[in-house]
Design a protein around this nucleic acid. Structure first.
Length: 347
DNA sequence: AGCATCCACCCAGGTGTATT
DNA sequence: AATACACCTGGGTGGATGCT
């Protein structure tokens, strides 16, 4: 402990000096010394406690920063791993798109034919030839340009397919799914922003799959969101979500800039994610619904496998029932939302 | 200004099929 | 059976736009 000095009254038995003081006086001195020593010990203990608290706080802070750093590094590694298969080169892709759609370009892909049809083969050759001669891409391998052309054809082909009447419902389902996923992502980010230090440990590992769905709806003519919590979420996590949501909505800025959560809907019919961090799953899932597959460390934060296809698999009958109808048809005891708040603020 | 939403696009990965 | 390729699916991203 730097700078700390003990007083000259040393602990221990005072030296025996016969005849210099009466026994009462010696006892008094001894008591005084002991009191002083006791006070010093108390101060010393308090100092040690303070220092330990400071060290613990520092360690906690370092631990949090390390965790955050690990998450960033791991998510980068995950992205790089996933993208190994095809080089991501927006520059080439954009050049292909611009050239293909340029007013002066008369050779364009026909999405009604396959990539290897004579017409589309000719378009590909034309694009590759022209782009390879472009000053911007003169250092780029022809294979990379060819790959970008094929990819762009896929985009055109897909758009064509989704424009067909028989795929309209599927295209709509995809859009709905993407919208829902975006909403859950924003919800997760917003809640992470109001976590307190003592909630961090419990929250660690939560994914967007654990957030409620927010479906478009209306109550008594007021448009907003119908909240549908995941059926597999533990009560503890639901309670924490409620706390965080209340914290968010205590902020007028938040309430004025976010959609209104109108009504408690029935639990979401989304399936639990296929994989999750096993330790986090024990806290975040209902016991009988814990995913069996462990998510590896690399994709822990970002994997959202349960999202895939669930919205697409809903029966046609389901689509006839609006989210509000769903919500109102459900009995009140099933209505559990993140915060149990019915907030209807007329715009 | 900040947020929600839509849209276009990229691209990894899965599946089916033809070829060797 | 192994390989190559075409095609399809769907998650992620960023820009544009409209709303509060």
């Amino acid at each position: 402990m730097p700078g700390r000095r003990f007083s000259s009254i040393a602990p221990g038995t005072p030296p025996h000096r016969p005849g210099l003081a009466a026994p009462d006086s010696r006892d008094h001195k001894l008591l005084t010394a002991m009191r002083g020593l006791s006070r010093q010990l108390a101060r010393f203990a308090a100092d040690v406690n303070d220092q330990l608290t400071a060290v613990n706080a520092k360690l906690h802070s370092i631990d949090e920063r390390m965790t955050a750093l690990e998450e960033v590094v791991n998510s980068r590694a995950c992205v790089e791993e996933k993208r190994k298969r095809r080089a991501h080169n927006p520059k080439i892709a954009e050049a292909v798109r611009r050239f293909h759609n340029a007013k002066g370009n008369r050779k364009r892909y026909n999405p009604e034919e396959g990539l290897s049809s004579p017409h589309n083969e000719a378009v590909t050759s034309h694009l590759v030839q022209a782009l390879a001669e472009s000053p911007d891409l003169h250092n780029v391998a022809r294979d990379a340009i060819l790959s970008a052309c094929k990819t762009y054809y896929e985009t055109i082909r897909r758009n064509f397919r989704y424009s067909q009447p028989d795929l309209a419902a599927q295209a709509e389902a995809m859009k709905t799914a993407a919208r829902s996923r975006q909403r859950r992502k924003r919800l997760l980010e917003a809640r992470q922003g109001v976590l307190s230090a003592d909630e961090l440990d419990f929250w660690r590992g939560v994914t967007i799959d654990m957030m409620s769905d927010e479906e478009d709806g209306a109550v008594e003519g007021v448009a907003g969101w119908i909240v549908r919590p995941p059926s597999f979420r533990s009560k503890e996590l639901t309670d924490l979500c409620a706390t965080l949501q209340a914290r968010l909505e205590a902020n007028p800025k938040y309430t004025s800039t976010h959609h209104r959560r109108l009504h408690i809907g029935p639990d979401s019919d989304r399936n639990p994610p296929n994989a999750y961090n096993p330790d986090a799953a024990k806290k975040h899932f209902k016991e009988h619904l814990i995913p069996q597959r462990a998510m590896n460390h690399h994709n822990f934060e970002n994997d959202c496998t349960s999202y895939k296809t669930e919205e697409l698999l809903s029966s046609p009958d389901d689509t006839d029932l609006s989210p509000l109808d769903d919500a109102l048809a459900e009995s009140p005891e099933h209505h559990r939302v993140d915060n149990e708040i019915l907030r209807v603020t007329v715009a």
